[in-house]
């Protein structure tokens, strides 16, 4: 399947079956993923990643989830800035490949098309392997960074994560031109 037909297919999936197999990605986010995210992952992989993040850190009516804290965008920033490390990009990518393989082997579907229970089963399966567990842990750590780091890094928009946890950030806050990877 080429990239374009995949996008069309998943696009139609979103509109047609969103109540059954919710991708948890709204149109704006999807468009964001398609245009902004780096080419180090395919569009399909970006979507798998976003869905994994939302499963690990779901949105709630009274609490932000991966979507609200811009976890996918944050991860891309962290893995593509001037001092980022290609080996870590490979690590993330390999995990996504692994996730979709388990999903295909178990349910003959993409991870993004699985039910919440099936997604949980796939991730728990992945967790039984040492490298899989490390991968999930790494994603969770990046999620918490997106939740609680300074908004200059691309997560925690308007301090949404700090507000949720009544956390008072320190001062002086870092300005954008002093992001650690520019120093």
């Amino acid at each position: 399947m080429n990239r374009r037909s995949f996008l069309i297919q998943t696009g139609s999936t979103i509109t047609a079956t969103s109540t059954l197999f919710s991708l948890n990605i709204d149109a704006a986010t999807l468009s964001n993923l398609q245009t902004i995210q780096g080419a180090w992952l395919s569009q399909q992989q970006w979507q798998t990643l976003a869905v994994v993040q939302e499963h690990l850190f779901p949105s709630e009516s009274d609490a932000p989830g991966a979507k609200e804290i811009q976890a996918t965008h944050y991860l891309n920033v962290m893995l593509t800035h001037p001092k980022s490390d290609a080996t870590e990009r490979d690590l993330i990518k390999n995990g996504i490949v692994q996730i979709d393989k388990i999903a295909q082997d178990s349910y003959s579907k993409y991870f993004t098309l699985l039910s919440t229970e099936q997604r949980e089963a796939v991730l728990r399966h992945l967790e039984t392997e040492k490298s899989g567990k490390q991968w999930i842990r790494l994603l969770l750590e990046y999620i918490f960074e997106a939740l609680l780091s300074d908004p200059i890094y691309g997560g925690n928009p308007n301090g949404i994560g700090w507000k949720w946890l009544a956390h008072q950030p320190g001062f002086p806050a870092p300005p954008k031109n002093k992001r650690y990877y520019l120093l």
């Binding site: 850190f57 779901p58 709630e60 949980e120 567990k133 999930i136 842990r137 918490f144 609680l148 994560g161």
Partner: peptide
């Protein structure tokens, strides 16, 4: 440090915690 405090919660009694 809030990120350090939050990430210490990931480890559950049996395996990793995630989700709600």
């Amino acid at each position: 440090n809030p990120i350090a405090r939050a990430t210490r919660q990931i480890r559950g009694r049996s395996g990793l915690l995630w989700g709600k």
